[in-house]
């Protein structure tokens, strides 16, 4: 297992879900109530990301923030991954002693609530609002995870190179959520980017789920995407299929890394 890739996926694919979590879950919202800080995660010789906690919201960003309130540094990606998976790991605290209480007592609440919806008892919820939320964070994780793998997996560099430029729109009918995974040109090279519930000007390829229920089944691993597409009803695809083809390779790898 490539620990650095896993760390990248956690930082770029899972950490962004905190944004959605505090907007939906009361317990999580309570945990950050009144807090105002910028929490930065850094892995030595590896990826970094930060979250900005302010006014009851969380905003995720990749890379280092110029003025973090707290800097958590990890000597190895393995240490970060173990912490992310709930083990009692002490990162280096470079900055932010005044926020120690929040880090020890409140931040784990966010992680616990996310786990509740993704893997815990909340996974079997029947409340439509919870299901909609799970679809939302599931789709968000898929998109961010695909981009993390496409950007950082050394074994899939050839696949990233040969991925066609363009935007794949993934949409849940009838009312969303929806998001995009794009390969775009930048400074003579390319990057992978995602958007979530933002207006889409043109999609080069489209994947549509017939309902939130179908999307949830796929996210929960209860539905095989390839055969469901073949059945022609619950998941429809169209447009630039090579883009969908490559995105599905990144998605498969994302799933493999976080479940191993």
């Amino acid at each position: 297992m490539n620990e650095m890739l896993k760390a990248s996926i956690y930082l770029k694919g899972i950490l962004p879900l905190m944004e959605d979590l505090v907007a939906f879950d009361q317990t999580a919202a309570q945990a950050i109530k009144g807090k105002r800080l910028i929490l930065q995660f850094e892995i030595k010789n590896g990826p970094s990301a930060h979250i900005i906690i302010r006014d009851g919201t969380i905003c995720h960003g990749t890379g280092k923030h110029p003025l973090p309130s707290v800097r958590l540094t990890f000597k190895t990606p393995d240490l970060f991954n173990r912490m992310f998976e709930g083990e009692d790991v002490r990162p280096g605290l470079r900055k932010g002693i005044p926020h120690l209480y929040f880090l020890i007592k409140k931040f784990p609440i966010l992680a616990d609530r996310l786990t509740y919806y993704l893997e815990g008892a909340g996974k079997n919820a029947t409340d439509p609002a919870v299901i909609d939320f799970q679809v939302k964070i599931g789709l968000h994780a898929m998109l961010c995870g695909m981009a993390a793998v496409a950007t950082d997996d050394p074994d899939l560099r050839n696949i990233a190179d040969s991925t066609p430029f363009g935007t794949l729109l993934i949409n849940v009918l009838p009312d969303g959520p929806f998001g995009t995974f794009s390969k775009i040109r930048q400074n003579g090279n390319f990057i992978f980017s995602v958007s979530f519930n933002q207006p889409v000007k043109h999609a080069n390829a489209v994947m549509e789920f017939a309902s939130a229920d179908v999307a949830k089944q796929l996210i929960d691993g209860k539905l095989n995407a390839v055969t469901t597409i073949g059945l022609g009803k619950d998941i429809k695809i169209g447009g630039l299929l090579p883009l969908i083809d490559k995105a599905s390779i990144f998605l498969y790898q994302f799933d493999k890394v976080i479940n191993n």
């Binding site: 390839v226 597409i229 073949g230 059945l231 022609g232 429809k236 695809i237 299929l241």
Partner: peptide, 10 residues
């Protein structure tokens, strides 16, 4: 010959 390669459902 996977259906996704042609026109799924059609």
């Amino acid at each position: 010959q996977n259906p996704a390669f042609v026109i799924p459902g059609a």
